[in-house]
């Protein structure tokens, strides 16, 4: 699949965008299945806004976002759900876990939401082991630390089938060691799925071999 952005400008940021320059806003960008795309965005430039627009959580923009050539505003909820189950996955900056579900339940919900789970149940345990969260799997999400929740959110995004993974500051609460482990896991699963990703973060980094890097 691919995601195409055509002359995208979020209305609340319009004036600021038109005054400055961006590789994304008010430009034409195509994100394809195999891309490892890094978007570097200082604070306030609209990382979360872009994530929400890509995910069709907000529509207050001019321009167009297309999934496989279709304007996402014309895609109904049922079809959008099938994109979110089969082709797209996400790690939100604010994580969006169900606080009253356990960590493993949050992950399972994502794994089994489609008829064809991305990974088997044992692989979930391996991922948890890799990221060092095995001990909190049966703990309610809202009782875990933010760092633990972030790792649970990363695992949740990897257990479903996907072709493009959208990440909004996915390592913001992880130390260097855990970040490297998480990046390694993400790369491994992307390779298994022949998938790509869009990673939005504040600074440049070398966690992945990015195919290209853009400035927001």
């Amino acid at each position: 699949m691919n995601i195409q952005l055509n002359q995208l400008i979020p209305i609340p940021l319009k004036e600021k965008i038109l005054q400055g320059s961006s590789d994304i806003w008010n430009n034409n960008v195509v994100i394809s299945k195999g891309d490892y795309l890094k978007i570097v965005a200082p604070s306030g430039t609209g990382k979360t806004t872009l994530t929400h627009i890509l995910w069709k959580l907000r529509t207050d923009y001019t321009g167009e976002v297309q999934y496989d050539g279709c304007n996402i505003n014309g895609i109904n909820a049922q079809v959008m759900a099938s994109f979110r189950q089969q082709k797209l996955s996400v790690i939100f900056q604010d994580l969006r876990l169900f606080g009253h579900l356990t960590a493993i339940e949050n992950i399972e919900l994502s794994r089994i939401k489609s008829a064809t789970p991305g990974v088997g149940a044992h692989e979930v345990l391996e991922m948890a082991e890799t990221l060092g969260v095995s001990h909190i799997l049966n703990q309610k999400a809202n009782t875990c630390s933010y760092g633990e929740q972030q790792r649970v959110a990363i695992i949740r995004s990897l257990v479903q089938p996907f072709e493009i993974l959208v990440m909004d500051e996915p390592f913001s609460h992880l130390d260097e060691n855990n970040t490297l482990k998480a990046a390694g896991l993400i790369e491994k699963v992307c390779k298994q799925n022949n998938a790509g990703f869009v990673l939005m973060d504040l600074d440049e980094d070398s966690y992945f071999e990015y195919t290209h890097s853009l400035k927001l």
Partner: peptide, 15 residues
């Protein structure tokens, strides 16, 4: 809010 989050995560309206 929970229903909205379920839909955000890809649970279909039909489900």
């Amino acid at each position: 809010n929970d229903i909205a989050l379920l839909q955000t995560l890809g649970i279909s309206p039909k489900q």
